[in-house]
Design a protein around this nucleic acid. Structure first.
Length: 261
DNA sequence: ATGGTCGCTTGGCGA
């Protein structure tokens, strides 16, 4: 993320984001660029990182309380951080989670590919945890889930049924997680299921086309009580055209307490 | 169709 501070500033300026959830920050806590990020308007920060890989963060204009870093699959690999954001609005406190699901490697075989096995175990442990936690309100789960749940979330699903991120077993495991937490996909709440929607294109693809290609790997899920207050949900593709872009476009959801009935 | 380019780090891994 240290390579993306400038882009973060443009995003903050153009869209006035209140709470940012980042994944794959690739920076250990002692090197986290707190001062630069505070200068962009995010003095409240929760972050967890290891050297070079993974790493998650929540950046907020609102105070963050009860920051918690959770380990999964017996690994301290910094894929999940949560905190309560005190919004100071009629919405009150939001329980915000930033999640980075393992990518799963190339081969969609949990026996022969340890990375894929880890991905499935991660999703299963998450589902178990959310079930044990029980129903909740004012929850937001945002992250790189590394899965395309719907046909329209990937280009040419029919040509890629055996490819990691699109396989049936991953989608089933993610659906279990979704049900366990009582989550609603905020993006699809505002967009038809068959609308092709992508957040991510590989840097390896050369002259990749962020509009016509890619995958929807990045998601913002909300608890049921927030459903009426979702005002907009979008994939901010403009950011992919900036200098030194991330290979993931920001997903932006706006909540408006005035919509509450 | 099994490459390609990045970022983090300095040889090579993970995406």
């Amino acid at each position: 993320m240290r390579r993306r501070i400038e882009a973060l500033g443009w995003l903050a300026a153009e869209r006035k984001i209140d709470i940012l959830c980042l994944q794959e920050t690739k920076v250990v806590e002692s090197l986290f660029p707190s001062d630069e990020i505070a200068a962009l308007g995010y003095p409240h920060q929760a972050f967890a990182g290891i050297k070079a890989f993974n790493g998650v963060s929540i950046l907020s204009k609102f105070p963050l309380l009860n920051v918690e870093v959770r380990d999964w699959c017996g690994r301290r690999d910094c894929r999940h951080i949560l905190a309560w954001a005190e919004t100071g609005t009629p919405l009150g406190k939001l329980e915000v989670h930033s999640l980075y699901v393992p990518a799963g490697g190339n081969l969609a075989d949990p026996v022969r590919n340890e990375k894929f096995r880890h991905k499935l175990e991660f999703l299963a442990e998450q589902a178990h945890w959310w079930t044990a936690r029980g129903a909740g309100s004012n929850r937001v789960l945002a992250g790189d889930f590394n899965i395309d749940p719907l046909i329209a979330d990937v280009r040419s699903r029919e040509r890629l049924p055996l490819t990691v991120n699109h396989t049936e077993i991953e989608i089933i495991y993610l659906e279990h997680l979704r049900r366990a937490g009582g989550w609603i996909d905020a993006f699809r709440l505002k967009h038809p299921d068959d609308e092709p929607s992508f957040t991510c294109c590989s840097h390896r693809a050369g002259n990749w086309d962020p509009v016509g290609r890619g995958q929807r790997l990045d998601h913002i899920w909300i608890s049921k009580n927030l459903k009426p207050v979702v005002k907009t949900a979008e994939i901010f593709k403009e950011a992919l055209g900036w200098d030194l872009p991330s290979d993931h476009a920001p997903v932006i959801v706006t909540l408006d307490a005035r919509l509450q009935t």
